[in-house]
Amino acid sequence: MIIHIVAGGPTNFLPHLQAYDGEDVYWVGVDRGVLALLHAGIMPKRAFGDFDSINEQELQQLKMKLPHIDIWPAEKDQTDTDIALEWALEQQATKIRLFGATGGRLDHLFGNVQLLFKGKDGQIELIDRQNVVTLYRNGEHIVEKRDEYTYISFIPLTPIRALTLRGFKYPLDACDVPLGSTLCVSNELIHHFGTFSFAEGILMMIRSKDEK
Rank of each mutant, 00 (worst) to 15 (best):
W27T: 05
V28E: 03
V28L: 11
V30W: 07
V30H: 10
D31L: 09
D31Q: 05
D31S: 08
D31R: 06
G33H: 02
V34P: 01
V34R: 05
A36Q: 11
L37H: 03
H39L: 04
H39T: 14
A40I: 00
A40L: 03
G41S: 10
I42K: 09
M43L: 15
M43I: 09
P44E: 03
P44V: 01
K45T: 02
K45E: 13
A47N: 01
F48N: 04
G49P: 03
D50E: 06
D50N: 12
F51A: 02
D52S: 10
I54N: 07
I54C: 08
N55W: 01
E56Y: 08
E56P: 01
Q57S: 13
E58S: 13
E58K: 11
E58D: 13
Q60Y: 05
Q60P: 00
Q61L: 14
M64K: 15
M64C: 05
K65P: 01
K65H: 09
W72R: 12
P73A: 13
A74E: 13
K76L: 10
K76V: 04
T79H: 09
D80N: 10
T81L: 15
T81H: 12
I83Q: 14
I83K: 13
L85Q: 08
L85N: 08
L85Y: 05
E86N: 15
E86T: 12
W87G: 11
A88W: 01
A88F: 05
L89V: 03
L89E: 05
E90K: 14
Q91F: 01
Q91V: 03
Q92F: 03
Q92L: 04
Q92K: 15
Q92Y: 07
A93H: 02
T94C: 06
I96M: 06
